[in-house]
């Protein structure tokens, strides 16, 4: 696998750092090279939170990058904040619960894609697994890790929560799967649409 660069951005509390960390751990356990670095500013909670994730079969150089292969922006502010990381090779994904204003969207991208992650979380599952749907979507879009190792990493990360409430396990695994499928389907639709 050649280098994949992913930028995940959302409002503080949407859990983008948590899923970037789980994805990085999954890649690490697959024996891949990986670097995850949070953007960290002076705010503890407020503001847009961005996670920079790189996965590769080869040694990775600089911990940051200017242009991402995939950007996932989960709020309107996150769209505006991450547009700068997009170029002609970037797949730019946002939640379809809002329509980003054209001036916020990146001037250049390979494709802009809307995913109904928030809606599915709210209607079919539970708001608190919203970020796991997104994690599944990242896998569906990039194949950056296998579905199995993502499951394992999730299991490892949330072990104590799952122990306390086994229903959470099912909820999370469902979210992961729904996210993956949703992303794959959108990609296919996108291809058809583009064609």
């Amino acid at each position: 696998m050649s280098l994949v660069r992913i930028a995940l951005a959302g409002e503080g509390g949407q859990g983008v750092q948590a899923i970037a960390e789980i994805l990085a751990e999954a890649a690490y356990h697959e024996g891949k090279q990986t670097i995850y670095i949070p953007n960290f500013g002076i705010e503890q909670r407020g503001g847009v939170s961005i996670a920079f994730l790189q996965v590769s079969d080869q040694k990775i150089g600089a911990p940051k990058f200017y242009k991402a292969d995939v950007i996932i922006a989960l709020s309107e502010r996150a769209v505006a904040r991450t547009a700068m990381y997009s170029d002609e090779n970037t797949l730019f994904v946002h939640d379809s619960g809002f329509d980003p204003s054209p001036e916020d969207l990146p001037p250049v991208s390979k494709q802009v894609l809307g995913l109904p992650a928030i809606e599915i979380a709210n209607t079919k599952l539970h708001t608190k697994v919203f970020n796991i749907i997104i994690m599944g979507a990242v896998i569906g879009l990039t194949n950056v890790v296998t579905f199995e190792s993502a499951r394992e990493a999730l299991e490892h990360k949330l072990a104590s929560k799952f122990e306390n409430d086994p229903r959470l396990r099912e909820l999370n695994m469902q979210a992961l799967e729904i996210g993956k499928k949703m992303a794959e389907e959108s990609l296919w639709e996108g291809v058809e649409h583009n064609a």
Binding site: A24, Y28, Q33, I35, Y36, I37, F40, P63
Partner: peptide, 10 residues
Amino acid sequence: DGYQAKMREP
């Protein structure tokens, strides 16, 4: 530096 402080790598 801050990158080395905060990033995760093996």
